[in-house]
Structure formats: C-alpha cells, structure tokens
Design a binder for these strands. Structure first.
Length: 945
RNA sequence: AGGCCCGUAGCUCAGUUGGUUAGAGCGCUUCCCUGACACGGAAGAGGUCGAUGGUUCGAGUCCAUUCGGGCCUACCA
C-alpha cells in the first residue's frame, strides 16, 4: 500500500484528530492493578487550574513538561496516572460571577446566598470546562476518567472530614485577631494573598499633649487616620528621653480621650521620635502590644474601610477622606508638627488590587507549627526532594517563619465551614448539621456563614482525589504521588500545604505493618508524604524578558502560537528553552524554527515511504514481514516492584533498534550515535534537563540522520542505480527501524507528528493503539562504537574540506572536480578508499586519487592533522583573500601553540593535571605543529607568486 | 531590611561537578529551486564570556568587590 503524504506538514488537522483519538480511546487511563499484581507506578497530580482560567503560557510550559515526563514514564512501562481537575477558586470565581451580575445591574446580595451559589454553578457548567478543552489541544495525556472538581461531593466530604479532625485535635481554633482584610472583596485573606508594593508615602509627626504638664509627646505615623482608634502611646523602657513621662496620660487630639503612656518593646528608640501610637484594632504589632497591656481595642472602621461611629465626627468617611480631614484638623489645631517623605510597603489584595486593611475580626485559624515541623523534617531529610535545589532553602526559610493560617473567608462560593452556632453561644463542629445544640438543647443551630480558603481544599488533593477518607485501592497504589511539577509562585500557597496535610493525615507504611504488607512496600521512605519530588519550573516571559501580564498587554496566547506553528512546535520550543532554574523568554523565531523541524521530520518520512514503497514494488523488500520484526521490541516491559521511585527505571529489555542490520560504516556509525543520543536523552529527562534532551534529539535527527545518514544511504536504496537488491532491502529495513525508534524517542515532546507518522509506518494498523504505549528507546552501551564514530568523523572531515575548497575556488555547484588526497596513515588511506563513493557523491567529486607527497602548500589545498586534500581546478583564486584567510588561520594556530607550550612547560601542570588532559594537550601540540608548518609554507608560496 | 536569579556572537539562549580549540537557533554574507524537504541544501563571517581583584598548573565555570537588569519574602510606626 503506497504511502501518500502531502509535501508540507500541516499540523492543524492532524493534531486535532489525534487529540480526539487519545481522549476517545481512553489510552491514558491506567487500570487499577489487582492485589497480587506488581508494577512500577508513576503518579502525577496536575496543579488544578482555576475554573475561571484560560490557558496561558505558564500553563502550557507546566503541562508540556508534565506531559513529557508522564509520556516518558508510561513508555518505559510504569503504571502511569496523571490526574486532572479544576479548582473552584473561591474569590476569583465569585468575582467573575459578581461582575456578570453587575452587568445585569444586580448584586450578589440581591440574589441571596442560595441563588447566588446556584448562579456560580451555572457559570461553572458553562465556562468552567474551557481550560480543560484547551489542555486537550495540547495533547496532555491525562486520565480524563478521573477528572475532579474541588467542590465535587466526595472531595467536599473529605474537606469536612479534615476540618473536623483538625478541630478535634485542637489544631483549628476560632478567635478575634488582626487579619488582612480586603474592603472590596469584603473578606479576610491570608498573608500570602497580600502583595506588597513600595510606594512613596509620608511619615507624619503628631504631638499629643501630656496631661498635667506643659509637655507634648510626639509620635510618627504613616497612617494618621488610625489615631482615632489609639488607646495608648508606647515608649521604650531603655529610652531615657521619656523616662519622666511614664505612667502619665495624654489627651488624644480630636477625640479628646485620655490614653496612657506605656513602656513596650514596640517602640524603637532609633526610629522617628522613639514614641509610637498604639492602635490595637488596626495594626498587627499594636494588636500584640495591646494584648500585653490589656488595652481596649477600638475598631474605627467598617467592612468597607469606612469610618464607623467610633470615629466620632469622622464617621461615614472613607479611610482616605478621613486621613485628609484628620490631617487638616490636626494642622489647624497645631498638633501636626512634621511631615517627611517615607517609602512604605503597602499591601494590596492579590485578586483585586485594593489596598488591604489590617482589621480586627473573628476568624478561623490553623495552628500551623505542629504541621510545619513535620513538613520541614521531610524536606530536610530528603524524603521529599526539591529541584532545583535552591528552592529547598527558600521553602525551609519560609516554613521556619510561618504564621498561623487564617482559613475562613467571608465569601459565598466555597466549602462552607462545618461549624454551627447556637443562640447560647455554643459552637458545634461536626460532620453533619446537628439537629440540636449539644449544650443547651435549642434546635437548629445556624451554620457558620464563612467558607474555607481555596487552598485548604487544594492542599488535600494528593489523597482526596484518590478516594480518601475511604481506604481505596487507588490510594494504596497511587499514593504517594511520585512527582509534582509546578511554578514557584505557588510553592507556599499549595506545595507547602500539601506537604503539611499529607504528612499529617496519610499513614506512613513503614510505621504501620499492616499497610506495609498490603501495599507490598518494602522501602525505607516515609509513605505519608504527598509526593517524592517537586520540580519547580521557570517563568515564561515575553521576548523582552518582561513578565507577561494582562495590564502590560504582552501576553502571548498559547492557542495563537499553536494555531500558527502547531502544538508540537510550541511544545518543542518550551522544552528546548527550559533549562532548569532559568526563566524562559518566549521567542516566536524559535518556534518558527521548530515548525521547520517538524516539517523536516515529515519530509524525511516522505523520503522513507517513497523508497520503501519502491523497494516493495521492486521485490527488494517485504514491508509486512519486516514490521513483524519491529513488533518484538515494541512493548514496554511490565516488571518491577509497585513502589519504585521515579528515579529508578524498571527493567526494560533493550527497546532500541529492532531489525537494524549494520553492514556499512554509516550503519555502524548511526547505530552508535543513536544509542549515545538515547542514553543522553534518557539521562536528561531523568534530571528535568528538558532543553538538553530536546536539543540532543534535534541534532541527531536533523544533523546525523537527515544530513548524513540519509544522504549516505541513498545509493543503496535505489538498486536500479547500480545498487544490489538485497542491500536495498537491508537499507530499507534500517531506515524504517531507525525511524520507528527515533519517533519513539521524540514522542514525549512532539506527540502529534510522531503519532501520525508512526501509524503510517504501520500502514494505519500498528500493533499498539498508539505510539504513546510503545516502548521508549533504551541505550545499549555495548552498541557505542568509537571506531565507527572516529572513522566517520574523518570521512566527514574530508567531505567538508572539499566542499569548503570548492566554495573558495568558486567552483560551479554542478561541476564535478577531481581531488588528490595525501595521507601518511595507511588505515586512513584505506578508510577513505573504501568510502570513495560517498566522498565523490557528497562532495561532488569526479575522482579521488591518492598521492605520495604532501599537498599542504598548494593553493586549492587544505590540510588537517590526518590528511591533505587538493581540489584540482584551473580557475584562479583570489590570492589576496586567500592570504588574509591563511594569516588569520596561522595566527589562531600560533596563539594556541603558545598557549599549549605555556601549559606544557609548566611543571606544576604536568604534575597536577590529570594524565588525560596532559596527553590530549601533547597530542594536540603535535597536530598544531604540523598544521603550523603547512600553513606557513603555503603563505610563503603565496607571497612569492 | 533580608534572600534569590540573570548579564556569553546583531537578537534569543545553551554551556552538569573548573580541563585542551566557548556552542545552537534566528538574523547576516556567498552559492544552489540536485528526484524527501527553499519550512530545504552547502560553505562562511561574527564573541578579550558586564567590570575589577583573588584562589588554581588551569576560570565563562569557584571566591570577593563593583556596575547594570529582574524576582521573591518582610507586622518596624
């Protein structure tokens, strides 16, 4: 059956077709192994995108890297689960729907809680799937059967279970504290959700009259309006300046309230005037000081950050208007004594950008220290490794300075807190709504109106997605997950929380003999950790290294890139640019280059099919018979124990080049190259050096395979041009074998084009449903063939030298020229002699003759350490240009010689440097001496002519 | 305030533990639409690796200082 492929690769139709096929055929849903079955497992949890999300470059990078690692594991025989889902994203989603309502002229309170939540669900059903559809377009090989949503019934039950357990253990408490309050979102937010921004502000100095004296005490503040809620002035105990005022009282200006002067470490004698106003209800430090001194907390603002009745005459004003009025009044009443420029870091709401107000309110918190301690331990002792390693220190620093986590949010969309309040003041935390108050017996306690921080539920995902709190087989098999690939941004939001929750709630098999036996786990590692390794990937920036943001308008839309260059090219770009630890400046010219690469692969395939079909017709090759031979090495091995870590490979029998028969130099050479590249690529995936793996494959396929191997093998493929029938068959087989293996090698990065061509190789009837299920090539180091590589390098060197000379001599492209070659080395001579056909063809040489004398000094000749070659051509060369070139070359050589001599004459070098380096240098010095001699004499010759 | 990262060819970036001649893609120059591919082939030009000093037989790579760019964390008014 002849293969018909269009001349140029058109990714569009092909990609969507395979994307649908993969989903439809459920190729990526791993079967749950039975109790006795043992197989290496690889589990990866997709960082759930927000339901509000649209795919951006960051997602694409993240998902490309995950998909590469996932496909690579799957192809090596791991039982592979990649678990997808979406996050309900409390604040973000609520904002979207509120915005939608606003366009209808409504507010959420107009609808009421129930109706509003219904509305959000509707919104979710409508728009929530967008990002997952976009993921399908990327080719993400996730298990769609296990797709979850963080508000699903099962996951919600697990959230309640966790809350109740933590409460019962005393790790969740409720209390009135200062929290970050967003006046626009009207909710508390965690420290992490506050983004700090440095702005030029002012430091105001206000004097307060000390009662019973003529003195004033002056304080400095950046937020004068908060003075309305002052309940003390603090000075430092060591500060002699204020010693005489201690215990006295001041009259708070504008409010005419008496407040005490206290001594507290809060006041830093070095800063400002050394005296500080204390406003316990509006500043976290003041709050702490207030507790120490039993000061009243006067809350002067409402939930919108407007002044309330406690602000007396200022009630009703916004915090900014109040600030102006307060300043004005202080000024007119002569209390304002100074104004200085001062840079201040103001906190803004991560979601909406509104300036956050520290606000006193009653919230739920998690006592974090006990959870953090364990989470620190598992990272310190390496049970969880973080790559790149510098993030480990960042993680540990943060964990050591962690504060209690405020988990309640005054929102409607989210997991409602499972606590019920009774009129009598009792709070009942329970899995189900209680019918009666457990204390006073009153009926129908009311459920707490707050919901949980979104990250509370996402922190549980590694086990809740596997059926926890039920004891499921899934959990036994797939927990702990193997790896987490995520962005640095959510290291604390998400990664740290998963570690804390996982370690706290999941059983450690090594400490639990029953579970240990059940899972067949005999390792030493802690099994409660949510994952064994975290890989933090880089940030994708725009071509100018700027962070992409909507406001800057420099966002590159991945779907647009896909549209223009194809998914494979886009994926390859991200892989090829993703060196660990460095950000990616996304440039379209690179993507364009990789689209060309896809086209190159496509055309190489066309070439293969063309020849294979012709050989088949000529009776030189039997395709079906040959494909049977390929099949043998196609299935990944399934051996190994259940709990292998991702770092270990299952024992896979060599799944490289089935059916390849090396007979010629280029065969031996390409075989060796293939195994070397395969080794490097596998090593690179293992250590997340995506760029290295991608580049190795690129260079191999384009450079070695297309530019050299295919060119060399051409005559063998066309028996009618003088080749032999039998050798044509072998050559076809080698080509197909090599192509099949190369496709498998490349598949994790470019899943679409490889799938398409692979199916074509098998005439649309491959032995497996997808190349994604075929075995990943493994290197066989016994196939490394240094001799073949060295020989090939010499042949290539000669060909390139001749081409080079031809260009210099301005020989017409089509014109064949005779060449002379001189070499002292009999082996090299025989090598070149044996490969004269290749040389003549690839360098467009008429005839190659060996001569007895050095040719180095002739014009139109070139010397290397191994041979001299002379192109016989009558046309005159530009002597001036040639002289210049030679001069430069000689300079270069002499510079290197000097360098080498300096080293070699240094005794320290000879003693201390490894023998390998010294020997290499000596050898090189000899070569250089020869080259120098030849170049010199050639220059001499040119001067005299 | 503390911490992290980056500065290599015109542009975008590689360069793992210090080891001989610093690489790639794009762009540029010259030639070629040769039967897989002009999204191609062949040959080239282009870099004192931000600066200074140090460690070392040997530094793009390690250390210190410095300049320039970026990021993150932080409750000092």
């Amino acid at each position: 059956m002849p293969h018909e492929l269009p001349k140029a690769y058109e990714p569009g139709a092909i990609e969507t077709r395979w994307a649908e096929y993969w989903v439809k055929e459920k190729l990526f849903s791993p079967p749950t192994p039975g109790p006795g079955e043992s197989r290496p497992v690889f589990t990866l949890l997709l960082p759930p995108p927000n339901v509000t999300g649209r795919l951006h470059m960051g997602h694409m990078l993240n998902q490309t890297q995950m998909d590469i690692i996932v496909r690579w594991h799957r192809m090596r025989g791991f039982l592979t689960l990649w678990l997808p889902g979406t996050d309900h994203a409390g604040i973000a989603t609520q904002m979207m729907v509120e915005r939608q309502l606003a366009s209808e002229g409504k507010k959420r309170r107009d609808l009421g809680r129930e109706a509003f939540i219904q509305r959000v669900w509707e919104w979710k059903r409508h728009y929530g799937g967008a990002i997952l559809d976009q993921m399908k377009r990327l080719g993400a090989s996730v298990d769609w059967d296990r797709e979850y949503f963080t508000m699903d019934e099962g996951l919600s039950r697990a959230v309640i279970e966790v809350f109740v357990r933590l409460y019962e253990e005393g790790l969740i408490y409720r209390g009135k504290y200062i929290v970050n309050w967003c006046p626009r979102c009207e909710t508390a937010i965690s420290d992490l959700e506050v983004k700090h921004e440095e702005v030029q502000g002012k430091l105001f100095e206000i004097r307060y009259p000390v009662i019973g004296t003529n003195e004033f005490i002056t304080v400095a503040t950046t937020r004068p309006e908060t003075m309305l809620g002052d309940t003390a002035i603090a000075v430092n105990e060591k500060d002699e300046r204020y010693k005489h005022l201690r215990g006295k009282k001041v009259l708070l200006p504008l409010m005419n309230r008496e407040i005490p002067i206290i001594t507290d470490e809060l006041a830093n004698p070095e800063f400002g005037t050394g005296a500080v106003k204390v406003t316990p209800a509006h500043d976290p430090n003041d709050f702490e000081a207030g507790l120490r001194h039993n000061l009243p907390q006067i809350d002067i603002m409402d939930e919108h950050a407007h002044m309330n009745k406690n602000a007396g005459p200022y009630a009703g004003l916004s915090r900014y208007a109040a600030r102006e009025r307060v300043l004005e009044d202080l000024r007119t009443q002569n209390f304002l004594v100074g104004e200085k420029k001062h840079t201040i870091a103001i906190g803004k709401c991560d979601r909406c950008g509104t300036v956050v107000e520290p606000r006193l309110s009653t919230q739920w918190f998690i006592k974090i220290k006990p959870l953090a301690d364990r989470a620190i331990e598992v990272v310190e002792n390496g049970e969880i490794t973080i790559v790149p390693e510098n993030y480990k220190q960042i993680y540990l620093n943060w964990m050591h300075n962690i504060h209690d986590w405020c988990i309640s949010r005054q929102l409607w969309w989210g997991h409602r807190i499972p606590a019920w309040h009774c009129k009598c003041g009792e709070i009942i935390v329970a899995r189900e709504a209680p019918a009666k108050c457990s204390k006073c017996g009153a009926s129908e306690p009311k459920q707490d109106s707050d919901v949980l921080d979104t990250w509370f539920s996402s922190g549980l995902l590694p086990f809740t997605t596997l059926g926890w709190p039920e004891q499921t087989r899934d959990q036994e098999v797939f927990y702990p997950t193997t790896l987490l690939i995520t962005a640095y941004e959510i290291l604390f939001f998400w990664v740290a929380r998963m570690i804390m929750f996982g370690c706290h709630f999941m059983p450690d098999h090594k400490q639990d003999p029953v579970l240990k036996q059940a899972s067949g786990w005999a390792g030493k590692k802690d099994d409660s950790v949510p994952f064994r390794q975290v890989y933090i990937h880089a940030l994708v920036r725009d071509a100018d290294r700027q962070k992409m943001s909507k406001t800057k308008g420099n966002v590159v839309d991945p779907l647009d890139v896909i549209q223009r260059f194809g998914t494979d090219a886009a994926r390859f770009t991200l892989a090829a640019m993703a060196a660990p630890g460095t950000d990616i400046a996304f440039s379209e010219s690179r993507t364009d280059g990789y689209r060309a690469f896809a086209n190159k692969i496509w055309n190489a395939a066309r070439f293969m099919f063309m020849n294979v079909d012709r050989a088949e017709q000529a009776g030189a090759w039997k395709q079906q018979e040959f494909l049977k031979r390929l099949e043998a090495g196609l299935r990944p091995a399934l051996a190994g124990s259940l709990r292998l870590r991702s770092g270990q490979a299952p024992t896979i029998p060599h799944a490289g080049l089935a059916g390849f028969e090396a007979s010629t130099l280029e065969d031996h050479w390409i075989l060796s190259r293939f195994h070397r590249v395969t080794k490097d690529v596998n090593d690179a995936w293992q250590t997340y050096r995506f760029h290295e793996a991608a580049n190795r494959i690129y260079d191999f396929f384009w450079g070695d395979f297309c530019d050299w191997y295919i060119e060399l093998v051409k005559p063998r493929l066309t028996p009618e041009n003088g080749g032999e029938k039998a050798s044509a068959g072998v050559a076809c087989g080698n080509l197909v074998s090599l192509f099949d293996a190369s496709l498998r090698l490349l598949h994790p990065v470019m899943p679409f084009i490889t799938e398409e061509i692979w199916h074509a190789v098998y005439d649309g009837k491959p032995p497996l449903k997808s190349i994604a299920l075929a075995a990943y090539p493994q290197a066989d180091e016994k196939q490394f063939d240094l001799a073949a590589e060295t020989s090939m390098a010499i042949v290539q060197d000669l060909i390139v030298s001749v081409r080079n000379l031809r260009a210099e001599l301005k020989v017409e492209q089509k014109q064949k020229v005779p060449i002379q070659v001189y070499t002292q080395d009999a082996e090299i001579k025989s090598l070149l002699d044996q490969n004269r056909g290749a040389i003549e063809r690839l360098a467009n040489v008429e005839s190659l003759t060996f001569v007895q004398n050095s040719l180095g000094s002739l014009p139109g000749a070139r010397s290397t350490a191994r041979f001299d070659v002379h192109v016989i051509y009558e046309k005159k060369i530009d002597l001036g240009a040639e002289r210049e070139r030679l001069k430069k070359e000689l300079e270069q050589i002499e510079k290197e010689i000097a360098n080498g001599q300096r080293q070699l004459s240094n005794e320290q070098f000879l003693v201390k440097a490894p023998a390998k380096v010294v020997d290499g240098m000596k050898k090189r010095a000899q070569e250089l001496a020869v080259l120098q001699e030849k170049t010199k004499s050639k220059l001499e010759e040119l001067k005299t002519t």
